[in-house]
């Protein structure tokens, strides 16, 4: 069966499974025998995007590597909510060392496995955005530069949620956090370039860099599978909305990830050896307001008097992404400028 045929399967196109498809053509998550790398009973908040993202990624990685996966985890929500003594939610080989060193720990594991002649066992490192773009960047850059055989996954929820929602280098402009309150002339987080880790990763010219979200499971799984088919340093940046930190409804986790992509604020693409090779075009373009107004962290931009000027700057950023990555839908005319 080809992908063109799949078009006919209305439901199967974007949902996890489809009764009309052969089981091996369904998503990993639709497989009743999926690994459940992180299982029930973890202490993540209701509607946690990171718990979801981690299971999506690791289950796909486990399938791709036929079970031969070892995971290193940075300090953060994911580590804390999954391993409070005496219970662990992990069902795969898993180690946690520190906040800022997971890339190096993973490099060490990969080196050990290579020295042991067990390179069929693959290494996945995972961290939140703080553990990736801020405190973990040194080790991560080293891992990239050495092209160690590690898939590094950043679950980006755009702040230090574990410690009470402080700003990270991945917090978007204008967002309210515990350290960027909506007070003063420039409410919320500052406007800056941010740390665009996918592009920083691309600058290392590593074999594979991709972005994805929990809103497009099939895309995410395909990227994990692709990443696992390559050796060397690989980077996957997954947007995982956080109901706590974003002050959003727990049911809206996937919806927000979807709106982040459909507004252009979060470009979904993949790159090989530093060159963008594919982008996921926007299907149903929405203004950034659709995304922002569902989140309490942007509430100060709306209402009376609101900050339409700030919203316009955020929209300009989304528009820039759309031009930069060519995200416009096929028939859509995107104004440049």
């Amino acid at each position: 069966m080809t992908t063109t045929d799949l078009k006919l399967y209305q439901i199967g196109t974007f949902a996890a499974g489809n009764r009309l498809l052969d089981p091996d053509e369904r998503s990993v998550q639709a497989d009743p025998g999926r690994a459940n790398a992180i299982t029930s009973g973890h202490r993540a908040c209701q509607g946690c995007g990171e718990a979801l993202g981690a299971r999506f990624v690791l289950d796909a990685a486990i399938r791709a590597a036929e079970g031969n996966i070892v995971t290193a985890n940075a300090t953060g929500c994911l580590e804390v909510f999954s391993t409070p003594y005496p219970e662990s939610a992990w069902q795969l080989a898993w180690v946690h060392s520190l906040f800022g060193n997971v890339a190096a720990v993973a490099s060490g594991i990969a080196a050990a496995l290579k020295a042991q002649g067990r390179e069929h066992i693959r290494v996945v490192a995972q961290a939140g955005d703080g553990g990736t773009v801020d405190i973990g960047l040194g080790c991560l850059s080293g891992m990239f530069e050495r092209n160690d055989d590690v898939l590094f996954v950043c679950y980006d929820n755009q702040g230090y949620m574990n410690t009470g929602v402080q700003r990270s280098g991945a917090t978007p402009p204008a967002a309210r956090t515990a350290t960027t309150k909506p007070v003063g002339v420039e409410p919320g987080n500052v406007f800056g370039q941010g740390k665009d880790l996918p592009r920083i990763a691309m600058a290392h010219e590593i074999p594979y860099v991709a972005t994805a979200t929990v809103a497009d499971l099939r895309d995410l799984e395909r990227k994990v599978e692709k990443a696992m088919s390559v050796h060397g340093a690989r980077y996957l940046h997954v947007l995982v909305p956080c109901p706590l930190g974003w002050a959003s409804a727990s049911k809206d986790t996937i919806r927000l990830a979807r709106l982040a992509t459909q507004s252009g604020l979060f470009p979904v693409f993949e790159a090989e050896h530093g060159v963008v090779t594919a982008t996921t075009p926007i299907r149903q373009r929405v203004p950034v307001e659709d995304y922002l107004t569902l989140q309490g962290r942007f509430a100060h931009l709306f209402g009376e008097p609101g900050r339409p000027d700030v919203v316009a700057r955020i929209q300009a950023g989304a528009d820039r992404n759309i031009v930069r990555y060519g995200l416009a839908a096929e028939n859509e005319v995107v104004p440049h400028g």
Binding site: L8, Y9, Q10, I11, G12, A15, A16, G17, N18, R19, L20, R26, S27, Q29, A30, P32, N36, I38, T39, S40, H42, A44, G47, C48, G49, A51, L52, R55, F56, L217, T253, I254
Partner: peptide, 23 residues
């Protein structure tokens, strides 16, 4: 296949996939 199966489960497995708690 254009039918959206309004109001009745269409066996798409999405609920199984999207639960953060594997519930």
């Amino acid at each position: 296949r254009r039918c959206m199966s309004c109001g009745t489960c269409l066996s798409c497995d999405n609920c199984v996939a999207v639960c953060p708690d594997n519930a």
